[in-house]
Design a protein around this nucleic acid. Sequence first.
DNA 1: CTGAAAGCGCTAACAT
DNA 2: ATGTTAGCGCTTTCAG
Lengths: 350, 350
Amino acid sequence: MSVTIYDIAAKANVSIATVSRVFNNHARVSPRTRARVLAVAEELGYQPHASAQSLARKKTSLVAAIIPMMTNYFFVEVIRGLQDRLAESDLDLIVYSTLTLNEVDVQLERALQRGLASGVLLFATPMTPARVARLQRSSQPVVLVDSFHADFDCVSTNNREGGCRAVQHLIDRGCTRIGMIMAHPESLPAADRRIGFEQALRQAGLPLREEWIVVSEDMKQHGFTEEAGYQAMKTLLARRTRPDGVFVTSDLQALGALQALHEAGVAVPDEMALIGFDDIKISRYVGLSTLRQPMYEMGRVAVDKLLGRMEQPERPTSHTVFSPALVVRRSTAGEQAQEKGFLAWPLDHT
Amino acid sequence: MSVTIYDIAAKANVSIATVSRVFNNHARVSPRTRARVLAVAEELGYQPHASAQSLARKKTSLVAAIIPMMTNYFFVEVIRGLQDRLAESDLDLIVYSTLTLNEVDVQLERALQRGLASGVLLFATPMTPARVARLQRSSQPVVLVDSFHADFDCVSTNNREGGCRAVQHLIDRGCTRIGMIMAHPESLPAADRRIGFEQALRQAGLPLREEWIVVSEDMKQHGFTEEAGYQAMKTLLARRTRPDGVFVTSDLQALGALQALHEAGVAVPDEMALIGFDDIKISRYVGLSTLRQPMYEMGRVAVDKLLGRMEQPERPTSHTVFSPALVVRRSTAGEQAQEKGFLAWPLDHT
DNA sequence: CTGAAAGCGCTAACAT
DNA sequence: ATGTTAGCGCTTTCAG
């Protein structure tokens, strides 16, 4: 069927070992034979067989990305960064998108133990002792994206700082009753954002009222969904006194929150300002203020780390932390928003 | 290092063949030895080695999806469908997202010839004779998503019908000068949508004026980008007489078009109505009318077809065509829109 | 610089 | 029902 090194060895009058050497730029092969081999290979349209190579080399050209919630478009952008960087190194990407964390463990097992992937990019997954142990006893390197553990290479955004800046921004625009819509606290990013939130309030001497903090009970995608945001805002709106500014742990939730606000006839940002986190593509269109994560870049860096470790398994782990950038739009700045976004368009025909 | 069938064979006092049989539910293995083997395997934490299996079986557990423009969130939704269905059959998904069609061919070659993937899902790629030939001489089955060729299994949306219904909707709401913003005509879906567009105009006896049709020259992502839509609308707005209704070949482009309309102070839909195609998630939030494609379902069906063919390579090809559903929102219906979407919210504070 | 040969871990005849 | 034995296509000592 497909052409193998035997075919090209025969046709080029060399042994298969030589052919193999040529393709691995290995040892000393005379320029002449090398050229001949290459020519024949080209002529026959030879391509090395992936599985055979993996078996012999004891490592694959596959990297697995395990992504707990791809519906969160944040991750889609990161994937692009992964892809681009991976392609440069001739690696292929296996994608597992899961809905629950149990599934994460299942997929992890799949990718790790069958020797399918020679590296794993693990997204937004809390590092329980069990997971840490599992990961450590596997030989493949792992890079954590959007979560952290000192024993692994990590890339993430400074969520605490982001939460802090979000609240600071609300304060700057004059909000005094500041609330928060939290995803599930098991999510480390969400938890960190909350810490930043509380810190900023303390610093400003503003009250931190529990009734203005709504925490998602929904485990589904850790509560990073529009539905969760919608429900949370409904809850918030039912309070005796309402906050006049709300920090939401993700843009996706903020979208749902906006919907609830709209249905309740609450003016944004005048009666209530809203700021999210991520800066997914949608946000620009709805004029949602937010903290932008450099998603594409995060993807590239994640792969860099993975490749680095594949070459030097013993090098010390490192953690790259990006600072989120404040993006001011209508949901906090009203008409004065620097970035108007789309939301403006219907105003014209009203 | 890792445990192999030899280990478990030794420990269970059987041959490796028997172990293999157990794991492949193969021939007749006595219940007793089977139990014993399974027990030992469990104890040792055995997992078959993916590459070794692939090499011996001459087929992998990997399916490749080649996606020319993942930034088009349409495809992200389809991927979910793929994933879910694939997981049911214990297959893994390799994702290649490319920006140009040249890259598509490169990736195709990668996936196909190295025997990496045992099946390919090819997205939105025009079936040139060269590609058809390439695909046909490979042994792996291919399913075309969002494109068509009689020699392959396909799943797509009825784009002609969609274009037709879009225009019909514009006509129903009273538009008489109907224009269109086209992606690159090399894109089959775009071309088909245009055919539907023209057909509907003819049927209604409305003029089909070339100056109201703007075709993207941009090859990048076949012109399915916001930027392309933005530029196209600018062009359209510069015409002596403007259309009062525009059908755009994708929601992504429509988003850009809306931006241009906003900047020009054109009232939507009163001065100009707009309708897109796809119904990506964003569309609901900006109140964009559109034709919805059943993305998740398309993904599942695509995998069904692929698996079907992997089992019966000779079965006749089939083409599943979904009918797009009209979704009416503010961009064509104004305040009367059934689905209000989010665009409403800023109205409240104006 | 090049060839021979022994695996890598598993499957699949072919025997028994 | 189970064992033996060839491979699958490639890498990698070890000789020459």
